[in-house]
């Protein structure tokens, strides 16, 4: 491992440990409640959910079959919370790659090391990829163990498909914040762009699907390529995931070229 990637992982370490614990704890807690829900289907079944407004159910992923294993996982957590937590973690890393050390002045010395600018961006991102991969892998293992324990009945490969999806979603937003940060050096701007794209995008692919005027916007919403294939039900949606990976690669290239051209720390 190159010195810069190792150093970057050290920079990200505390962030990564915190998010890994948070996401894993949240998932195992949520999964452990399933036993009480599956034991009382009449309390949580369709009749009980009918009293919620349709828009709210859309936001939470339909909540159509909350008493089944995949339905329970998809509702609320894999629909909304887990992607959002991954995106937040990824944006933190994306900012820590360039914009945060540039604002604090630490980057000044880093750019004077014998490392080309493009390589610097790629190595900072590579460390973030490794970090996010660790978060996704650990949270997958914890959830898989908890799910087996609670008898949730979602096969490991479906769960893996879900975690791969949120991992790729995270990579996209990590690359997005990195790109804005690499092009401008401004952390607040990068967070703002990522936040608007994530929250706005989520609204478009949930509430917006019944509004024809904005429904087409789903094509530029990263969320769509995660939710569309219903990975917890059907396994890996390869085409959708390739779109996410491809968009990330384009962003990364943009980040490297933008950072190579500009003045640092002015």
């Amino acid at each position: 491992m190159s010195p810069l990637i190792a150093q970057s992982l050290r920079d990200y370490r505390r962030t990564l440990i915190g998010w890994t614990i948070g996401i894993s704890a949240f998932l195992s807690l949520y999964v452990s409640i399933y036993t009480s829900i599956s034991a009382n289907p009449e309390v949580y079944g369709p009749a009980a959910l009918a009293k919620f407004p349709g828009a709210l159910k859309d936001l939470m992923g339909g909540m159509a079959d909350i008493t089944s294993g995949p339905g329970y996982l998809q509702s609320v957590v894999y629909q909304l919370f887990i992607p959002m937590l991954f995106i937040a973690c990824a944006c933190t890393l994306g900012n820590r790659a360039i914009a945060a050390p540039e604002e604090s002045g630490v980057l000044e010395l880093t750019v004077t090391l014998p490392i080309p600018r493009t390589s610097l961006v790629l190595q900072r991102f590579a460390a973030a990829v490794l970090g996010l991969l660790a978060v996704a892998a650990v949270s997958f293992l914890v959830t898989w163990a908890a799910a087996a324990n609670a008898g949730i009945g979602v096969p490991a490969d479906r769960l893996l498909a879900g975690h791969t999806g949120v991992f790729l979603l995270g990579l996209f937003f990590c690359a997005l914040t990195l790109t804005v940060g690499a092009a401008t050096g401004r952390r607040a701007l990068a967070s703002g762009v990522a936040g608007v794209w994530a929250v706005g995008g989520y609204a478009v692919v949930t509430l917006g699907q019944s509004v024809p005027a904005i429904a087409w916007l789903k094509w530029i919403v990263p969320y769509y390529y995660y939710l569309d294939g219903r990975p917890l039900y059907r396994g890996f949606p390869v085409g959708d995931y390739l779109v996410l990976a491809g968009a990330t690669a384009v962003l990364l290239l943009t980040a490297a070229l933008a950072f190579d051209r500009r003045d640092v720390g002015v």
Partner: peptide
């Protein structure tokens, strides 16, 4: 290189 405003941070 010694920067004029050297920034060192973290734990």
């Amino acid at each position: 290189y010694l920067p004029g405003e050297l920034s060192l941070e973290g734990r």
